[in-house]
Design a protein around this nucleic acid. Structure first.
Length: 489
RNA sequence: GCCGCCUUAGCUCAGUAGGUUAGAGCGCUUGAUUGUGGAUCAAGAGGUCCCCCGUUCGAACCGGGGAGGCGGUACCA
């Protein structure tokens, strides 16, 4: 009773792994999405939207043998007790959509989709629990040509997003050759966790190198932080085979494939995968994508719904965080073939292949290269005399009519503060009509960019005060034209 | 999940063998420079020193627990 009762104030904070975004970042993402979807559309794909929530069973995300959704998806129970989950990718909802509308859709069905997805995982550098994906998929196309097309379109999309061909490598492999490898060393793809451990170890080849992978294939490995990862427990001979397979990657796709075939021996599934990859590589080379997209057995991809070719894109330049530290930066997009996903609903096999561009990560990568464009603000019309507000609004309206973004200053501060405001908004131009101009029926148009530039050479206070070379005073009727000149239009 | 590092003003960071009013730079606000952002000068605002518990006469500083951030590692269905 002694203490003064404090009123409750919630702490203003965001949930972990989620973030606010504003201004330039949103504009950059929108621009990137426009460029990517334009590529998809040019390949003949049509847009589709699906809801953020799906029934958990439609996503296939119930924990094994338990009546609860998997960790990793955000889930809640509807008022009828049914579990719903936020989508964690755009592929599962596509499969549901296709299965639900199967008879009415043209096959192959080609759609692209932009959407937010959610993953209940630990956030990492450039990794969040809410992010945007931009996918394109072809459903009902069994031929390896569809896979080749998906890879080429994927490459085009990333290039359109702003990463040139040299900035990115696309590594291509196939679930089938991985099965072939496992078969060759006497493991069954479906059986136990061991094959999974082997695949995950392979996935780390580019990061840990041959020695690290060998440890993970065998007893296990202790990483730099001192954490121990249990290995797959393979024999030395088995590990040798896996590593030989990994080292099959080379400049030459044909060479890589023949080396992979050598390791896989008699495996039928492996041979099938290699044949498909061979066909894909042929198309990629013929169309000029060979330098960017290479056969590389170290691509694995976690998603277990892939059934055939898989691919993923990584940036080739170093990425640093805001502290300037170089950071392990994962893929900026991926894709592959998933022939069984629609089958879950329909019973019949519906082959499908697609790609997914990680827009948020691409933006992070581009930002890390310092390529964020400074966004320009609107023209700001100063409000100097309260009774003249309608006139200021008229000026702004006249500018908008010419397609120029413009706003009237609506705060309560003086001229100095208004200019400061315009400066912070990134305005290039301000329109000023104070007492003096009004008396003469004129308007002053001030070029802030030019002024800033000129100010760099100004030395003395007098010079600073004296000249305002970056502004012109014109008749009211000339205002729009003067603004256009200042904007360089 | 596991391992490591970190958490002092809006930002970047100092700081003290534990001892009354916790600092700097930048930023911000206001003013000066005959109505003007960016130069210059002056003044000012702004901090539960992440949170809780403990040790102590006394803790931002020591101990324990927790949270958050960053990085690595695992997982990523």
């Amino acid at each position: 009773m002694a203490k003064k009762q404090k009123s409750f104030r919630p702490k203003a904070r965001r949930p972990r792994g989620f973030r606010d975004r504003a201004g330039a970042e949103i504009l950059a993402e929108q621009a990137m999405l426009r460029r990517i979807t334009a590529v998809y559309a040019s390949y003949g794909f049509a847009p589709l939207e699906t809801p953020a929530f799906e029934y958990t069973d439609a996503l296939g995300k119930f924990l094994p043998d338990v009546d609860r959704p998997n960790q990793g998806v955000f889930s809640l129970q509807d008022d009828d007790e049914q579990w719903m989950s936020l989508r964690y990718d755009l592929t599962a909802p596509l499969a549901r959509h296709v299965a639900e509308n199967y008879d009415g859709l043209p096959k192959p069905f080609r759609r692209y989709q932009v959407g937010t997805v959610w993953r209940n995982e630990k956030p990492g550098p450039g990794r969040f629990r809410e992010f945007t994906q931009c996918d394109a998929d072809t459903v009902g196309a069994p031929a390896p040509h569809a896979d080749a097309e998906a890879i080429m379109m994927f490459a085009d999309a990333i290039e359109a997003a702003g990463l040139s061909a040299e900035d990115v490598t696309i590594r291509v492999s196939s679930r089938k050759v991985m099965s072939g490898l496992l078969e060759a060393i006497g493991l069954d793809m479906g059986e136990s966790g061991q094959s999974g451990t082997v695949l995950r170890a392979m996935d780390k080849y580019d990061r840990l190198g041959a020695e690290g992978v060998r440890l993970l294939l065998g007893e296990g490995r202790k990483d730099d932080s001192g954490d121990f990862t249990k290995g797959a427990g393979l024999s030395a001979g088995q590990s040798d085979a896996v590593l030989a397979f990994m080292e099959a990657a080379s400049e030459d796709n044909a060479g890589a494939l023949s080396a992979m075939r050598g390791v896989m021996g008699q495996s039928a599934i492996g041979a099938e995968g290699a044949d498909e990859l061979s066909a894909i590589a042929e198309t990629l080379d013929a169309l000029g994508y060979g330098a960017r997209a290479k056969i590389d057995p170290s691509v694995v991809r976690g998603l277990d719904y892939y059934t055939g070719p898989v691919f993923e894109a990584e940036v080739t330049f170093p990425v640093t965080n805001e502290k300037g530290e170089e950071v392990v930066f994962g893929s900026v997009g991926s894709g592959g073939r998933y022939d069984d996903l629609v089958k879950r609903f329909k019973g019949t096999e519906v082959p499908a292949v697609g790609c997914s561009v990680g827009v948020s990560r691409l933006l992070t990568a581009l930002a890390a290269r310092g390529e964020a464009e400074a966004a320009r603000g609107p023209v700001v019309v100063l409000a100097l005399e309260a009774e003249r507000m309608p006139v200021y609004h008229r000026m702004a309206a006249d500018l908008r009519a010419q397609g120029i973004a413009a706003e009237v200053y609506l705060g309560g501060s003086g001229m100095r503060a208004q200019l400061k405001y315009a400066d912070r908004r990134g305005a290039s131009v301000v329109v000023i009509q104070g007492e003096d101009e009004r008396a003469e029926g004129k308007v002053t148009v001030k070029d802030l960019d030019l002024g800033a530039k000129l100010s760099q050479t100004v030395e003395s206070n007098e010079e600073w005060r004296a000249g305002q070379p970056a502004q012109v005073t014109v008749a009211e009727g000339e205002m729009v034209a003067a603004v256009k000149r200042a904007l360089g239009r």
